[in-house]
Amino acid sequence: MDGVIGYIVSVVVIPAALAAFVGGLALATPLRRRAWVVGAGIAIALPIAFVASFVSELGTVALARKFVVVEGDDAPFERWHWLGISCVALIALGLLATIVRTLVTRDGERIVDLVFLLVAALAVSVFVQFPQPSIASQIGLAGLVVAAGSAVALAGGALLWISWGTFGILAALAGIGGFASLAVMAGAVSVASLLLAILAAIGGKSIKDAKPVESAGGPLVVAATMLALVARGGDVYDQSKTPDWIWWIVPLVPGFALLFMRQSLRASSIAAATFWRTLGAALVGVAVLGAAIAMDASKASGSDDEDDPYADMYGG
């Protein structure tokens, strides 16, 4: 049991704490008064959680062996390790998107978001190739990044709370699918999002002139790309009965903040607005996860007599 606790601490708690520390500097210190710092902090923190968990689980060699020959390492590059490499790249891309956003007018910010989202979608569709890639699968991946971007944009100030739940659902699905490593990595991002959401709430209350959390710029590009990548990676390697459509819909869960958008826009406080948006996404998220669990359980229980490998054991 100690081994399991130690494992969870090393691959979930410490990476999440590291991400929370980095993000917390932007969210819960006087730096919170600068909007771009808030955005940069979140854009850096989310992928840091994933990368730290990835490295803790597999070592830095898993990130390096795609590009350099590591002495004493004869293991081949595994395609799902693109997830770790992508998150390293997203740290830079998210930071850049946040900085570029400060250089344009208010009207130009949306265009910057769109351009960076398209750059991320194009990059992952070119480089991130999971097993049995095809033109359709790569276009689908790019499309999912853009669709997730549209969904994440609706999360508004509830981005971190919704990120907590959405990455939590992906972690659960990966666990159901027998992909323990991805489960803990998505779990680390989920826990990091929760810690960041708490720090953001504390910072927002305690720091005068604190800038709000926004689903825009770096955080939008990073969160959308990570959601799409983790979902597709989880789906490709899924060994459970979870249908593909479940994996495809999860990155879109943040968009269901729209369900209570009217209440959110009429809310008298930021906390209330955040609550309503989170509630919409949470309801759909729980329903999706519940459906996945139910389908997996029902199909598993009904498969006992199907394709019995022992049926012809004594033949031949």
Binding site: E78, R79, W80, F130, P131, Q132, G177, G178, F179, A180, S181, L182, V236, Y237, Q239, S240, A300, S303, P309
Partner: peptide, 24 residues
């Protein structure tokens, strides 16, 4: 994919990337 532990769940885990990585 022919791994057989008597538990469908465990078979899935073994076929996953953390163990045999059947997809790759």
């Amino acid at each position: 994919k022919k791994v057989d532990t008597g538990s469908e769940k465990l078979d899935g885990n073994l076929q996953g990337p953390s163990f045999f990585n059947q997809a790759e």
